[in-house]
Every structure is written in C-alpha cells, then in structure tokens.
Design a protein around this nucleic acid. Structure first.
Length: 466
RNA sequence: GUCCCGUUCAUCUAGAGGCCUAGGAUCCCAGCCUUUCACGCUGGUUACAGGGGUUCGACUCCCCUACGGGACGCCA
C-alpha cells in the first residue's frame, strides 16, 4: 500500500501559518517516502464555510508550492456516502437515534460541571428506540468499557479510557453528518495511511478509532504536531498580526523563506538552519518533530528571508521585487536593469518591500534628504567638494565604474582632503541618504543625467540652508 | 472542574545516563571591516520549572507539585 497523507482544512478563513506548517509536514512526509499527498476541504459546516476561504486556502498552498496529488475533495459532495455509513452503523446497532432537546443537554452539562465532572452525554436515548419520525440526531454507540490506545508517531503511546468518551453525534437533526464521522469515512475511503494534524485533535483520536473499529476498518497511523503560539504565548490568532500566509507574501517574504522558517518550528535536523525544499524532503522525519508548542518569532523569519534574498538567484529576486516597486509607483523598466540593482542592494534589505524602498532612488528623484545623513554630509566645505567633483564627472565620456572611481579620487587628490570629504556629500546628494553600495557602482546605476542633476540640487540645498 | 498533552537561553532548537564547566541559530551588546547603510568576521550576556526517587553517575529514566496549552459543541 502506498503511503498517503492529507491536509484537511475547513474553509472558514484564510490559510494561516499554523495550518500551513501542518500542511508542510504532511507534504514532506509524503514526499520523503515517495507517497501521495491529498487536499481535502472539510466544508460540512454549511453555516461557516465559504467559497472565498476555499480560494484563499488554495492560493496559499500554491504560493508555498505545496502541490497535492489528489483533490481538492469536498466533503459536501460526499453526503450520500456518509449517510450510507451512518445507516450501516444504525442497522448494526452501533448507532442510535436520540431525541434529547438542547435544553436537556444544556441542563445536564451544567449539573455535571457543578458536580466537578467532565460534561458528557449520559446515554439517555441509548436504549430508548426513538422513532425515526420524531426530530432526532444519530449518536454513535461508544464502547462503555476498556480503553483506547494508539501509538502517536510524535508522542508515543496515548491511552484514554472509554469511560471518558461519550456517545458523539454523527448526524445532526438536519440530516448532515458531523466532523468525527466524515473524517473517518474520508480517511478510510481515500486510503490515508498517515493522519498528520494539529494536536488539538488528540482528544478526538480515540473516538475516531472506535468508529474505525465499529466499521471494521484498518486504523491509520497518527502524528499530532504541536501548536504554534503567538508572541504572548497564547494560541495564534488575528490579534498577533500577520497570521495569513498570503499576508507574508504582501509583506515581501519569499515562499521558500517562510517554508524554511516553518519547517524549523517544531522540527530540526541537528544544528542546520537553512534548508532548500529538496533538503527538507530528504531529511524530514516525524521522529524529529518536537512535542512542545513553539512561539512564532518574526525576527528570525526576517533573518531567514534576508538570507534568501542575498543568496537567491538575483533574476528571481528581481522578478519578485518588481510588483513591490510598482506599489511605490515605479516602473522598473524605466531606469537601470533591476537585476543589477538587486545585486547592488540585496544585503541591505530583509524583505522585498524594504528592497523596493531602498532602491527607489535609482528610478526617481527622492523627495527629501534623510535628515541625519544630510546634517552629517553637507557641513563645512561640502558644496565646494561637490562643485569640484561635478566638474570631473561631467567631463567623463564613459559612465563606468572605473572612470567614475577615478574621477572621485582625482577630486580628493586635487582638494587635498580625505576621501570621505568628497564621497559622503556625493553619496547623500545622489541617494538622499538611502543605504547604497560602493559609490562608483551607485553612480553608475543612477546614471549620468540624474547624478549631475542631483549634485546641482544638493549644492543649492547647502547654500540655501547656510 | 474533568480528561489529554507539554515544560533546555528572551525566541527557535541540539541533547536519546557519563562526550555538558549544556552546543547552534535569531535577538541584544562590544570590537573588527568600511566612503553611508548593510553584509561578513570575532567576542560577550542569558537556559536544563521545583521537589523527591532510581543509579557509581541524571538535562536525559520514574513519581509528585507548579506552570502552560488543548479538549470537553447538532465547529472542524
């Protein structure tokens, strides 16, 4: 039997980083073993499921490159099959009709809580033989005795006494099936061999195993991955800022950086920090997944993102940064080659958004000088230095790095000052104070026309601010 | 409240009884490099939740306590 894993989100919101990591682990486990990966949309909650959420999830999966071999399957398309299973359970006496009102259930729960007990259904209708004509739900007849035990691939042995489990509802009064039933039917029908999911499902696992056994089906392997917590240690949610995968795209993160960050959250391979997707696939093993929850840390994600910007293919980074330039109203086609700009600027930016911002001056004149930079660079005889260097630059025939550098050093020599006396004002004049690479490279990329224009502007600025 | 799961630097983690005076990474600090800002390099501060056992020896095994998270729904 081929190994098969699945990712089964419910479409009630965007794909968040916690879900994405669960999907990544499932995907890696399948890829590592040459198995198959299934995407299943668990949309049985008709009230809350939306088509927009489905699209958002699909979009996130695509952006991260977590391609699936089967699906997406939709549970709402499989109601006939669920009903068939429920009816079979009913016929075998493994499920029963229950007509308890919500009020009775509510009262029961309150009493149990007051008595310091775990709230659970008391089996009131278990042997009452409720008529199909009465309004009712269907409950699974959970075993009363013994315990359910399984070997979690991440946590080891987990056992729960059947006395802790109640008779769960598998069909609502409106006739729709519920989660614990559908997940078991689907995982069985789709041939899922390894169920990898968040550890908030640990408590559901024993009752699901009872369902498998009632149907006489083989029980899959389970692996429960720990949750991702927000910076304050509570469960990750909207109030922790960006939790949607697509928000990271908007904020200028590369998908491979997010993937790398996520894979190291709860999983490790010795001291290695950077993993290409191929390396992840090769080294991923569920036994190396941590049991404790971890906290999402944006600082480290940023560092990783910068590593990917610095060491990634400049042409690809240029392609990815281009839309962010567009957001600033810049058309990168009008100006220096974006790939060259990326190569010049990349170690100065942690995100593509930052990269776009610090590269804007290559394409258009900046609005104003960075105050601190201007104060430092434009003092003393700065205007004299600028005038002198402008003369030499203007005389240049070839606007290449070597002659540009020569022009600056010649000016320095003629003036008999330190290199910085000329270079600093020149740099600020041309960049406005934005982080920039070697001066000659900066001048080369900015171009002759803009360089001379900005020097003039700086001289004017200095004189009018005296 | 009941049940389940967990607990190594601020954060992500290495560690599978002696290799640990606990290693790496991010962050932070200092220095170097330097025409800005970064990158890079060097160094530094900081952790085995607490208490009992088991053992010649415990971060590693067992128990208890504390703390954190999760579940307890006609949500998934």
């Amino acid at each position: 039997m081929t190994l098969k894993t699945r990712f089964a989100p419910s479409p009630t919101g965007y794909l968040h980083v916690g879900g994405a990591r669960t999907a990544l682990f499932s995907w890696l486990h399948a890829r590592h073993h040459g198995g198959r990966f299934v995407l299943r949309i668990e949309d049985t909650d008709l009230e809350r499921s939306t088509a927009e959420s489905v699209n958002a999830i699909l979009e996130g999966m695509t952006w991260l490159g977590l391609e699936y071999d089967e699906g997406p399957f939709y549970q709402t398309h499989r109601f006939d099959r669920y009903n068939q299973v429920i009816d079979a359970l009913l016929e075998k006496g493994l499920a029963y009709r229950c007509s308890c009102s919500k009020e009775r259930l509510e009262k029961l729960r309150e009493e149990q809580m007051a008595a310091k007990q775990k709230p659970r259904y008391d089996g009131h209708c278990r042997d009452r033989d409720v008529s199909p004509d009465e309004p009712h739900v269907i409950r699974f007849r959970n075993p009363l005795e013994g315990e359910v035990e399984f070997q979690d691939l991440i946590r080891g042995r987990i056992a729960v006494s059947n006395a802790e489990l109640d008779d769960l509802i598998i069909r609502r009064s409106d006739g729709s099936p519920t989660y614990n039933l559908t997940v078991v039917v689907d995982d069985h029908d789709m041939g899922i061999t390894h169920v990898i999911r968040g550890d908030d499902h640990i408590n559901n696992t024993p009752r699901q195993i009872n369902l498998y056994q009632a149907m006489g089906w083989e029980v899959p392997q389970f692996a429960h991955v720990p949750m991702i917590l927000g910076e304050d240690g509570s469960r990750l949610s909207k109030r922790h800022g960006a939790v949607s995968v697509m928000q990271y795209k908007e904020q200028g993160y590369l998908p491979e950086a997010l993937l790398n960050y996520l894979v190291r959250l709860g999983w490790s391979h010795g001291d290695q920090e950077i993993f290409s997707v191929d390396e992840m696939i090769e080294r991923f093993d569920l036994k190396d997944v941590n049991r404790a929850p971890s906290t999402f840390n944006t600082e480290k994600l940023k560092w990783l993102n910068q590593q990917y910007i610095i060491h990634g293919d400049p042409a690809r980074v240029a392609h990815l940064v281009s839309p962010h330039m567009g957001d600033l109203g810049i058309d990168p086609a009008q100006g220096p080659d974006l790939v060259e700009v990326v190569k010049a600027q990349r170690e100065r930016a942690a995100t593509l958004v930052e990269l776009a911002q610090i590269s804007a001056f290559y394409y258009r004149d900046f609005e104003q000088y960075d105050e601190k930079a201007a104060k430092k660079a434009f003092k003393g005889e700065a205007d004299q230095a600028l005038r002198a260097v402008r003369e030499r630059l203007a005389a240049l025939e070839d606007w290449q790095r070597e002659p540009l550098h020569q022009a600056v050093t010649d000016t320095v020599e003629a003036l008999g000052v330190g290199f910085g006396k000329v270079a600093m004002p020149l740099r600020v004049a041309v960049t406005g104070g934005s982080p920039s690479p070697d001066l000659d490279l900066t001048l080369h990329l900015v171009g002759r026309e803009a360089t001379l224009r900005r020097i003039d502007r700086a001289i004017e600025f200095i004189q009018s601010n005296r």
